[in-house]
Simulated assay, not measured.
Amino acid sequence: MAQVEIYTKAFCPYCARALRLLGDKGVVVDETDITMDRAKREEMIGRAKGRTTVPQIFIDGQHVGGCDDLVALERAGKLDPMLAA
C-alpha cells in the first residue's frame, strides 16, 4: 500500500472528509495537524508548491492536492491504483 500523508487543521470539514474517504478504503494515513505549528505549515506550503489551504495530500511523496482533488481522483477511478502502488 502507498504511503499517504495529509496536512490538516482542527475543525476542518474538508480534512474530515478526506480522512473519511481514505479511512473507508483502509488506508493508514500519516496525519500532520498544522493548527498550532507554524513550522509544519511552512513545510506544507513548500511541499504543496505554495498552496495554503488544508488538507494537502501526498501519495508516495506525490502531491495530489486537496479534498476536492482527492474526490475527483476517486470519481475518475484513479485513486485506487495510486493507493495500490
Rank of each mutant, 00 (worst) to 15 (best):
G66D: 08
A76M: 11
R20P: 04
A39V: 13
A84F: 05
R41V: 05
E74Q: 10
T53F: 03
T35L: 08
I45K: 14
R47C: 12
R20V: 08
R51G: 01
E43V: 10
K9Q: 04
T32L: 06
D60C: 06
G61K: 15
M44A: 10
Q62T: 10
Y7S: 03
R38P: 08
E42G: 03
G66P: 06
E31D: 08
R75Q: 09
G77S: 05
P55Q: 01
M82H: 07
L19P: 05
D60S: 10
V54N: 00
T35A: 05
V64A: 11
A16N: 11
K78F: 05
G50W: 12
L73Q: 03
R17D: 14
C15G: 07
A84V: 10
K9D: 00
I34C: 08
D37F: 04
I45M: 12
A39Y: 04
G26Y: 03
Q62K: 06
A10V: 07
M44R: 05
D30I: 03
I34Y: 01
V54E: 00
A85E: 10
R47I: 12
F58M: 06
A85D: 10
I34Q: 04
E31W: 00
K40P: 02
A76T: 11
E31R: 00
L19R: 13
C12Q: 09
A16W: 01
V29C: 04
D30V: 03
R17G: 07
I59V: 12
F58N: 01
K25V: 09
G46Y: 13
V28Y: 10
L22F: 05
C12W: 07
C67V: 01
C12R: 09
T53N: 01
M36T: 14
V64K: 04
G66L: 09
I45H: 11
V29D: 02
T53M: 04
E43D: 15
V27W: 06
R75P: 00
A18T: 14
L19F: 12
A72N: 10
V71Q: 05
L19A: 14
L79V: 07
A18S: 15
A2E: 13
E5C: 11
R17I: 13
C15N: 07
A48L: 12
K9A: 02
L83D: 01
G50E: 11
G23L: 08
A10K: 13
V4E: 01
A48G: 08
C15R: 03
Q62W: 01
R17Y: 14
R17E: 15
T52M: 15
A48Y: 09
F11V: 05
M44P: 04
A85Y: 02
D68P: 01
T53V: 06
A16Y: 02
G66C: 11
P55C: 01
L70H: 04
V4M: 02
E5F: 09
V54A: 00
P13C: 13
K9G: 00
L21Q: 06
C15E: 03
D68H: 07
I59R: 02
E74I: 02
M82A: 15
Q56P: 00
Y7N: 02
E5S: 13
E42T: 09
R20F: 04
F11M: 08
R38M: 13
M36K: 11
A16G: 10
